[in-house]
Simulated scan of single mutants.
Amino acid sequence: MTASFVTNASSCPLTDLFGRRITYLRLSATDRCDLRCVYCMAENMTFLPRRDLLTLEEMDRLASAFVARGVSKIRITGGEPLVRKDILTLFEALSRHLTRGALKELTLTTNGTLLAKYAEALARAGVRRVNVSLDTLDATRFREITRRGSLGVVMDGLQAAQDAGLAVKLNAVALKGVTEDEIHDLIAFAHGRGMDLTLIETMPLGDVGADRTDQYLPLTDLRRLIETRWTLTDIRERTGGPARYVRVAETGGRIGFITPMSHSFCETCNRVRVSATGVLYTCLGQEDKIDLRPALRGFESDQALHTAIDAAIKAKPRGHDFRIDRRGTPTLARHMSALGG
């Protein structure tokens, strides 16, 4: 992929009406995934027709427009981004912004099933860190949570990532009746291999064929459980996302807590998300959005694209409104896989 897009737009940084500087873009490469995790998808999903997705060249152009406006971190998400055909060409194209210093970090979130295949190539493209979703260390439970897939394949992917020199952070969704049983083992596993562990409250996005109230485990409760074995100290370190971190005295490692349900982190939000179809969402927990495709496809210049981005940023809400109603039904029909969380 070779692209160099000239824009007449101002290089003015993106700042919303609440004074928050937007420096982080999460770009979904696809809504497809090779797993069907119970908190993320229904077992029988209907995915977008491939013709509706942005081309990888369009994704490069769009992401580059954000870099021109001061975005310094880009995370490629899904679905599972590595199932997108020729996805490496997008990383290779965006790496030019790393080379010239405009982009500080290019990374991805993955389920790990294809990491053994792609880890070395990702490292060559300038990726230095990956987030890998891993909710259990038990092979049988892994199969139950993902409805398919092999824990061994993910373990091979983790090893390949570290062998390639990639820093790895594990993401675990806190699930009632699951995470309580495994949290101590997850901490020991992650920190024993030099990996951070981030715990995430399940978010009420999309119909997944399960009662959300049966899944939800507040991280305040989980932290109390962790503290029965481990000594935690709150630290001020941040990695550019919403996680609040603690240091574990016994391991020296970090645990992150992402709490969209029990504790809002909206006051420091620096993120926007773009779907694989080119729709810009300024908040994961709201339906505020603007379709960037007309600006991408209707003009050779990026001026219209910057105008559309500016309009979206001005409409960015103060915060999300995640909640689960009395029937356990999510308030947003959009599945997690549409934007990557």
Score class of each variant (00 low, 15 high):
51 R>N: 08
38 V>N: 05
26 R>A: 02
24 Y>R: 14
19 G>V: 04
27 L>R: 07
46 T>S: 10
49 P>K: 10
38 V>A: 06
52 D>F: 08
67 V>Y: 11
58 E>Y: 08
53 L>D: 00
34 D>H: 15
23 T>M: 01
30 T>I: 14
42 A>H: 07
41 M>N: 12
54 L>S: 00
20 R>F: 05
27 L>M: 14
36 R>C: 05
69 R>W: 03
61 R>V: 10
52 D>H: 13
49 P>V: 04
60 D>E: 07
58 E>V: 02
61 R>Y: 11
44 N>E: 11
44 N>P: 00
25 L>F: 02
43 E>Q: 11
24 Y>E: 12
37 C>K: 04
61 R>T: 08
51 R>D: 07
42 A>Y: 01
42 A>L: 02
37 C>R: 03
61 R>S: 09
28 S>M: 13
33 C>R: 13
25 L>C: 05
65 A>H: 13
62 L>E: 13
19 G>I: 05
22 I>A: 13
34 D>C: 13
22 I>V: 12
63 A>K: 01
26 R>N: 00
57 E>V: 07
66 F>N: 14
32 R>P: 02
62 L>R: 15
22 I>G: 11
59 M>H: 09
22 I>S: 06
31 D>E: 10
44 N>I: 04
39 Y>Q: 09
43 E>F: 10
44 N>C: 02
41 M>C: 12
62 L>W: 13
46 T>G: 15
30 T>D: 11
31 D>Y: 09
48 L>Y: 06
46 T>W: 09
21 R>H: 15
53 L>H: 03
32 R>D: 06
17 L>F: 00
69 R>Y: 04
57 E>Y: 05
52 D>L: 15
21 R>K: 13
60 D>Y: 07
26 R>M: 00
53 L>M: 10
55 T>C: 00
21 R>N: 12
48 L>G: 02
65 A>K: 07
58 E>G: 05
55 T>Q: 00
65 A>F: 06
69 R>L: 04
48 L>H: 12
48 L>K: 08
22 I>C: 12
64 S>G: 15
19 G>R: 04
17 L>E: 00
59 M>T: 06
54 L>T: 00
60 D>I: 08
53 L>G: 01
31 D>K: 07
57 E>R: 08
26 R>P: 03
49 P>R: 07
26 R>W: 02
41 M>S: 11
54 L>A: 00
45 M>E: 09
45 M>F: 12
44 N>A: 10
23 T>V: 15
